[in-house]
Design a protein around this nucleic acid. Sequence first.
DNA 1: AAAACCGACAACCGCTCATCT
DNA 2: TAGATGAGCGGTTGTCGGTTT
Length: 285
Amino acid sequence: MGRPPCCDKVGIKKGPWTPEEDIILVSYIQEHGPGSWRSVPTNTGLLRCSKSCRLRWTNYLRPGIKRGNFTPHEEGMIIHLQALLGNKWAAIASYLPQRTDNDIKNYWNTHLKKKVNKFQSAMEPHSSTATSHQLVSKSSNIERDESLEFASTSSTATTTYASNTENISRLLQGWMTSPPKTANNNNNNRKAEQGGGELISREVEFENMNNVAWDKSTCETTSNGVCEEDDDKVKVAENYNEKQKADVNTNSKNNNPPLSFLEKWLLDESCAGQVEEMMELSSIF
DNA sequence: AAAACCGACAACCGCTCATCT
DNA sequence: TAGATGAGCGGTTGTCGGTTT
């Protein structure tokens, strides 16, 4: 169709977002809700293209986003899902409600891909009979050991604005105390449609079902300090999710396909435990 | 101390799909 | 029905901070 890029316009600012820009964007979304991105730059006066605003919101400013180190369980899930779904980051992200697709994609590219490749090349002489599942499971074990090391060595928080979650927490104070019309539901529904088939179609439900509990559990079991930092943000997210839960439950009642095997596996806590076990068992790698 | 290198991640780009007119 | 527009996704790039030489 030959549509010109929205960011080609003269006077459109690029590069890292400033705190002022974030405040403007958050304030606007707080008032009008996410969506109608086209109108955001014109209504706010931001010298950013609509796309940039959307990305900034969905990948960074949106409530409920967990930042910081990935837990071994999260790593295992990413590896599993990547093996099963390929580079469908949005689909994978739907199973890790607090992580953005961009985050997962970056983490895969910078950490997990290398490790998995390393493992695969190590397995090369013997791998002719190994199933991909075995491969992935064993890969997960490497992730765990190395990630623990990683977590202990890389916990130095960056001091840049963009990485400071407290800034965002403050920005989001009051968000959802007067909730806007949730265009997010529409986005989620659309994502579900786009994600391709049954596997993804239930992400909305899962997301809302797990957001709060997931956050709490992961916070309690990790000791990297990230969760404490994000406490305010988590609370804000909880309110946000409560609201969404109510909306989405209505929809899911009407259209509620059965869980696939993969989903069951992923959602089943005991199975998650098995992954951990497998990780332990193959720590020889 | 400074330059070179490297890793992490935020942001951008191009494409596709859905919706609207 | 076709074109225009909005929005989302995945790949890639740019920037920045830390580490090594």
